[in-house]
Design a protein around this nucleic acid. Structure first.
Lengths: 162, 162
DNA sequence: GGTAGATGTTTCGTACGCGAAACATCTACG
DNA sequence: CGTAGATGTTTCGCGTACGAAACATCTACC
């Protein structure tokens, strides 16, 4: 890895700060919205996903919200306890559990019209079309590059360090 | 808020995905690095901050890592139990607790030369100077816009919803 | 048809992470 | 001086969040 000039370091830190800010702020807002409906952040996310996509297996849900199965099990446990969702064992594959909204859950979903990331969306819309395209292109490039480095760097290194 | 065309919605979602990816990946990498030193992610962050800045009060530390005092209290509890840091009551202001690295903690910090966000940094460096400037400019604009909306939108709304 | 490995879910133990309340100390103001 | 409010930290209760192990079921292959 080449040495890093202080100038670039500064810029990178600022970009990093912005990414962290955008992420944490969108989480905070989701939580804020959720609180008004007596839900937690992740619970609101689950409700809105089930409303828009329909029933999902626990694994599919885990993928959607980028969490481990074991985490989602807990979230669904609490939502089931509150009567917002129900588990139904699949008949085709009896390992699978389908999660679906109850009437109460569906009603609640309709009462929260705003999508969690609405603010984020409208902020991006304040950009010009050109800026939006640029932003997307560059962010994708960074994300792709991170993926490459991760694949090459960690993985092998991790084994060595053991 | 103006209606949103499906095209733009798609783009926004992609940008959002990229931001989430970059954030979660950088966290995952920090955790990965930390694991090699028998630390957790936040603990590694604390160790490196104390190493580079020196002693800090608990509140100052909370600011640095963007967490609540109550969260940091727990992190420091566990680190103290492991003998990595120590608490010292301030003599000027007896409410304040200074956190400092023990010899063991300092030694550990030296043994982990890589900064947690190194990969993120080198990914950004693969951009051209122009792209980097654009990225920073645009991200800043989005972040600033989000801040504006948050200030105006939530806050009043929250009270009404009560 | 029986078993080894793959896959889907849950359980367990541990560590954040937050907000509200409790607690100690400090500061201002009368 | 005395006290009300501000400030710094901890405690408590709850909800994620993860990885490893346990468990059930499925699929391939013999």
């Amino acid at each position: 890895m080449p040495p890093i000039s202080p100038d670039i370091k500064q810029e990178v830190d600022q970009v990093f700060e912005a990414v962290v800010y955008l992420y944490t702020e969108s989480r905070r807002l989701t939580k804020e919205l959720a609180r008004r409906a007596q839900l937690t952040g992740p619970q609101l996310t689950v409700v809105k996903i089930l409303e828009s996509i329909g029933d999902l297996s626990l694994s599919e849900l885990s993928d959607k919200i980028r969490a481990q199965n074991s985490t989602v099990t807990g979230i669904i446990d609490r939502m089931e306890r509150e009567g917002l969702v129900q588990r139904v064992r699949s008949t085709e594959d009896r390992r699978v559990v389908h999660i679906s909204l109850t009437d109460k859950g569906a009603k609640l979903a309709r009462e929260i019209p705003i999508e969690p990331m609405e603010i984020f969306r409208s902020a991006i819309e304040s950009l010009s079309a050109q800026e939006m395209r640029d932003l997307m292109k560059i962010l994708m490039k960074v994300a792709k590059r991170v993926k490459q480095i991760v694949r090459r760097d960690v993985g092998e290194d991790a084994v060595v360090a053991k």
